[in-house]
Write a protein that binds this DNA or RNA. Structure first.
Lengths: 195, 195
DNA sequence: GATATCACTTAACCTAGGTTAATTCCTTTC
DNA sequence: GAAAGGAATTAACCTAGGTTAAGTGATATC
């Protein structure tokens, strides 16, 4: 894909969020990656101080417990901004990795230049605020879902929240998103079929 | 407590976050409340479009499931900024209420004026970004703790995260924070005593 | 075309935590 | 000081989901 097409897709995404972002962002150093299915954009433990834009494709945020179990924290479909806010902001190790579930195209910007840009351009800063708020509100929903709902309900919610995804990605990954084992998920699906 | 003392405590808090906030914030309309132990600052379902500053005291964020069960999403000790980001930003109903666990003193600012202030004062906006980032990162930790750790581990983590709190607040509230019943928490504490 | 390999299912068994209820111990309140 | 309500404990029982393992298709590899 052409470089200009890529930056255009970012521009389109920004505009859609309802802000007149100064086009000067497009002068930032850009590195387009193409990430193959299964590959990681970065791993848990890396210092992922880049701001990523997933232009096309599908990824999941995945973290591994001390006992070696995988947990999927989120699925994200392009176009969307992705990355570890924590790692960008604090320069600490990311507490999750980002794995492509489909071949994906990602643009990356050094957070430092992004941050510098923000300090000079209020529109830019406001855009970032919007972004934080959005993800933030999503997180709030998920947190309470985990406390309040059963695994079965969480599976049904998943199907609604990510329509189509349930037939295109592996069940083990759905299970790890819901917070149960693949075996348990299989049982739940079995039970739902009977209804 | 004197009005000036209160605004000073807000000023101090802001400064501590490392930003030169324009003092003009202090000209915003301020309403100091004093919230008694057990009372709610606002309830789940309210449109809580205020920006609150908990000057002194202790509160919990509590939401109730469809079945009527209470869930504590967080404890916050003053001085700290509190409120429902979602409700402020989207003007939708808050998905939790804020209840005082100790007699508390709270300042409230209409979000609209706060927002207006931000649009004119970049320092202000940057402060808000810092705030969002901080809460955001905290949420990330909690989310993964819920997936990865057992209730016992979550209890131990709670004791570390909120030192002293375990002896001053009710166990049912700790249980609802950990995501288990008071009965289960009692069992866990019993078991830990034996070790 | 035979054989690994991997995703998924199914079944048997186990455990953490939920539910209900009885008991004790505190506070209030009169 | 008696009575009543709430908080915590303990015990008996139940259930959702974990664990292990065997079986079934698929797809990949030789």
């Amino acid at each position: 894909m052409e470089q200009t097409q890529l930056t255009n897709s970012l521009q389109t995404y920004f505009n859609r969020l309802g802000h007149d972002i100064d086009l000067s962002i497009l002068t930032l150093p850009v590195e387009p990656h193409s990430v193959s299915k299964g590959d990681y954009l970065f791993q848990q433990g890396d210092i992922a101080s880049n701001f990523y834009f997933l232009s096309t494709g599908l990824v999941r945020y995945v973290s591994v417990s001390d006992e070696g179990k995988e947990f999927t924290q989120s699925f994200v479909k392009g176009p969307s901004v992705i990355g570890s806010t924590k790692s960008m902001v604090t320069k600490l190790k990311a507490s999750f990795g980002i794995q492509a579930l489909e071949d994906s195209i990602v643009l990356s910007y050094p957070w430092a230049s992004f941050y510098e840009q923000m300090r000079h351009d209020k529109n830019f800063l406001e855009f970032y605020v919007k972004l934080l708020e959005r993800i933030f509100i999503g997180k709030e929903e998920r947190e309470s879902a985990f406390m309040k709902h059963s695994a079965e309900r969480r599976y049904l919610d998943f199907c609604v929240a990510f329509p189509g995804l349930k037939d295109t990605i592996q069940q083990q990954q759905i299970a790890s998103y819901i917070g149960i084992t693949p075996v348990a998920l299989s049982r739940i699906r079995q039970k739902l079929k009977l209804c």
